[in-house]
Nucleic acid binder design. Structure first.
Lengths: 221, 221
DNA sequence: GCCGTTCAGTGATCTAGTCACACAAGACCG
DNA sequence: CGGTCTTGTGTGACTAGATCACTGAACGGC
């Protein structure tokens, strides 16, 4: 991918007026960040709006007791808009964003972001619909955590995160996805295994019966 | 309060350029809404940005099993910005906003909102910091639900919602505040009563020992 | 004062989270 | 190759929270 063409990667940006695209390209910089880097978090306020070109960013929350929960992921072609809001005020939030893979992103300085918002209706639409997506993601997380059973949530997560028929994750990592404890995941997975829905080995889970998992994932409650 | 002066009620708006204040006043309408009205929700997309002059709006989520959880409240002097985001896309969210009291609000049509965003840096700051507050509220809700013990959360909620030394709410309503079941609240309150922290009567709870509640509310876990 | 409705109390049972460990699978290394 | 270290997983016992199925108490309106 050439850096000059990255705008085409974003649905909402390719419709921008050419003049605005120009500004976007000339006043942003494409950066590469290594997997595992903390992009923002307590005491690490982001200075730029990031438009993700390659890789994924995981946004998660950590409790004082050490438990974690994944709030949402930003994937290639999406923007990390919530950080723009969190730039402004309320630095006391405890969520953090971590590069889950090596990533490449276009970084737009805050004042350029502000200029673009003022100048372009299309850019405003892009930004506000990105907000919209994140906020509905958060609503969804609240709903899942507050009301949905663990076994159902775990089945959903396995299906969602499977590449081919395998999920590469430790029980601890799955627990962090769902905001629960490792033991809970271990027990649920044992049960799934007993039902011959999965096979387990250290650090990976093979889905041997998607239909079984899908049936559970589709149930209410 | 005269309608002409409502802008002064909003910290972030009183600094607006006079020209912009003019637009805001002339192109918005002050509306009165009765307590209990659903302002937005599934199938009821809001057409305006609301700036709340009097009263409070409760934003909550309902599960298919009938349980509820309060996400946040909008109070006088604040704006209902998340609805602007949700106007745009993703109508499938299940959160709803209810007038908790009789309310008075300035309603700004969507296209005026867009014009103001384009025209005024101060207005942009106002909107983005409102977003910022709501999003950190949501992060906070996730953290509470996922990691905090019920007794602690209930103690906090009682202190937060007390007017004088009484909380006017049924057990069912407190359960909806915290996203739990009524029985859980009943049992926790019995325990608080046993410890002489509260007195109960139908629909009201009197805090007789704030210190006790505060001590519990301050504990971790 | 009666009656219907809304609130609150309670036991039994199930699911989830916590604590304290034991043990197994690789990783590293002499 | 066998030892030891780290990391991941299994398990029992216990506490907290959710669910179900009730009972009875309090209040509102005739």
């Amino acid at each position: 991918m050439t850096d000059e063409s990255w705008i085409t990667r974003f649905d909402g940006l390719s419709r921008l007026e050419p003049r605005i695209q120009e500004i976007l390209l000339s006043r942003s910089t494409v950066i590469d960040v290594e997997a595992g880097t903390v992009l923002f978090g307590p005491g690490r306020a982001p200075q730029n709006l990031l438009l993700l070109l390659e890789g994924t960013v995981r946004v998660q929350q950590t409790s004082d007791t050490g438990r974690e929960v994944v709030l949402y992921r930003v994937t290639a072609g999406e923007s990390c808009v919530l950080t723009t809001a969190c730039l402004l005020a309320y630095e006391d939030y405890s969520a953090e964003g971590v590069a889950e893979t090596d990533i490449r992103a276009a970084a737009i300085p805050r004042h350029v972001f502000d200029d673009l918002i003022a100048a372009s209706k299309e850019f405003r639409n892009f930004v506000f619909s990105a907000y919209s997506k994140r906020i509905t993601d958060l609503f969804h997380v609240v709903e899942e955590i507050a009301f949905r059973r663990m076994d159902i949530r775990l089945a959903q997560k396995l299906l969602e995160r499977a590449e081919g028929d395998t999920v590469k994750a430790t029980h601890q990592q799955m627990a962090a996805e769902l905001g629960t404890a490792r033991e809970v995941i271990s027990r649920q997975l044992s049960e799934f295994q007993r039902r011959d829905w999965i096979e387990q080995s250290r650090g990976t889970i093979r889905l041997t019966d998607r239909a079984g998992l899908e049936k559970l994932a589709a149930t209410q409650g």
